[in-house]
Structures are given as structure tokens and as C-alpha cells.
Amino acid sequence: MSDRFIVTGNFTDDPFAIDMAQYIGLREDISDVVSLKTFANSEFCPRYMLDVDDMEHIGRRLEGKIVLICSVSNHERSRNDYAMRNCILARAAKDNGAEQVVLVEPDLFYSAQDRGPHRIGPLEKDRPDIDLKKFDGQAFTSLLYAELLKKSGVDAVVTVHNHSVKVQNLFSEIFEGHFHNLIPTDVYAHYIKNSNFVQTGKDGNNLVIVSPDKGARPFMNAVYEALDLPECKRVVMDKVRTGEREISMTFNPELSDISIEEI
């Protein structure tokens, strides 16, 4: 089954892509499967490394293959650059006959811009004008990114803990349900309880988990339930945006298990 898969990252020697390839049992070095070359004018031009002597299957050598594009960002290039690389990698796969292209992007790009200056979709039908005004003159980049990926040939998207309901809905709609938002509560709870890095104390009496705002409470509570440590405490913060790039945080005593004096 693993011979149906081709794994690539969007930059050379991407450790996430290498780990993914090893996890599904691929033995070939991913750098030998896809060449992430760049033209002298800086344009990205990847090439899926196929049989150079095969003259009978030109443009069809990826038939029956499932291409996994593992997408993370680093400081070498901007997220804008990596997003465009994802689109080109997907198009190259589909132009050469790939059966399916799956984007695995744990931190889904452009999710912060999950609204635009218009009411789009049922979740936005009651948005007040003052909210629309915040995005006046800007682009609805979450929607744009989803549409670009789909047009490029991406068939499914896998991400981790995307907490924007609007982003989840629009990706689910555009990818016809093939959008998978993995919620890592069990992974977090297992790490907290079993790693040497976190000293939870007896029944969690040395542990406090914090929700940075009210929107994160469901995830915090899910981690709390998975921990099953009755003495663990929860703290909820209130986040207020004071400017385009500034926020203030205050302690919410009504939604927290402890008082400000105990923190």
C-alpha cells in the first residue's frame, strides 16, 4: 500500500515531511522523489523525479499515486512563499496524473484572516457593519487560499487544532467534506502526564492549565478531562484587542478554578 504514496515537503530536507514518509513506510529518500528546484529568476519549479527513459507515459507517470504535500513554515521564506509552493506542487502532481493530492498543513495558513469586508456564508449573515468595517479594504485570504488550493489540484486538507469555525466551514464546503481538523487533546494529555518535563504533582495538584481566551475553553476543558487529574486547576483569561496588533489580557475569576491570589 505504501508504494502508492509520494511524500514531499515544500522546502528541501523538511523534517516533518521526512518523518511522515518514514511513518507510512517509504524507504526512498524524499529528496530523490521530488526535486524542489528554482529557476535563476527565483521562480519555484518542482519536478517529480520519474523514469527518464520512459517515453510511453509522459505526463501520466503519477497515475494511481497519492501525493502528500507536508507543509510547514520556517524562517528561510515567508508563509506567502510556502503557500504558493504548495499550489505549484499540487498542480505538478495533477498535471502528471496523480490520483489524489492531500495537503497536510498542521498550522493552516491564512486562518487569522477568516473574515472579509462582506457577509459571506450563513455564519456571517448577521455580522454588524462595525465588524465589516474592521476588514474594509482587506482581502478574505482564508477563502482565497482554499480556492487556490482547490484550483491547483488539492483534493483534501489535513490540519491540526484549527479553532476558527468559519475557516473550518469554508474549507469543508470547498473540499466537499474532505477537510480534517485533528484535535490533539489525547496527545497533549499523554505528554503532560508522562514526560519528565512536566511535574504534575499528586493528582495534578502542581498543575494549572490556561485558556488564553473564552474561545479556547472547550479545548482546555477537553484536555482537562483527558488528563483525569482531579487536583488540576483551570484558569481562563479574557483577551481584548486594543489595536490592530495589540491585545490586553485579564484574569477571569468567574470562569477559573482558583483566585488571582493563588496564581
Rank of each mutant, 00 (worst) to 15 (best):
160 V>Y: 04
37 K>S: 14
50 L>D: 14
93 A>Q: 06
87 C>D: 06
88 I>P: 08
261 E>M: 11
30 I>N: 10
119 R>C: 01
233 K>W: 01
241 R>D: 13
222 A>I: 04
256 S>V: 04
224 Y>E: 13
44 F>T: 10
126 D>K: 09
80 N>V: 14
169 N>H: 03
142 S>G: 14
147 E>S: 09
57 H>T: 12
25 G>T: 11
57 H>G: 05
237 M>R: 00
255 L>I: 04
23 Y>S: 12
217 R>N: 12
209 I>L: 14
250 T>H: 09
193 K>T: 02
105 E>R: 03
120 I>E: 14
106 P>Q: 10
137 G>V: 03
224 Y>P: 07
194 N>A: 09
43 E>N: 07
205 N>V: 03
252 N>L: 03
80 N>C: 07
249 M>L: 15
93 A>P: 10
138 Q>S: 14
134 K>Q: 12
141 T>N: 09
48 Y>R: 08
188 Y>D: 11
15 P>M: 03
181 N>H: 00
40 A>D: 15
250 T>S: 15
39 F>C: 09
45 C>I: 12
6 I>M: 04
55 M>V: 14
19 D>S: 14
75 H>S: 15
235 V>E: 03
13 D>A: 08
189 A>T: 08
23 Y>Q: 11
104 V>M: 13
105 E>P: 02
227 L>F: 02
66 I>P: 05
180 H>C: 01
38 T>Q: 12
147 E>P: 00
70 C>T: 13
57 H>V: 04
156 A>Y: 03
110 Y>K: 15
243 G>S: 14
176 E>Y: 09
55 M>W: 14
159 T>L: 03
66 I>D: 05
154 V>S: 01
259 S>Y: 00
73 S>F: 11
211 S>K: 07
20 M>P: 02
248 S>M: 10
176 E>D: 13
223 V>W: 06
224 Y>F: 12
203 D>F: 05
261 E>W: 00
44 F>L: 04
76 E>W: 01
160 V>S: 05
6 I>Y: 00
43 E>A: 11
32 D>W: 00
102 V>E: 04
9 G>N: 07
240 V>F: 00
257 D>K: 04
21 A>M: 02
159 T>N: 08
15 P>Y: 07
197 F>W: 03
144 L>G: 08
257 D>T: 09
9 G>D: 02
147 E>K: 13
132 L>I: 09
156 A>P: 08
17 A>Q: 06
85 R>D: 12
98 A>C: 10
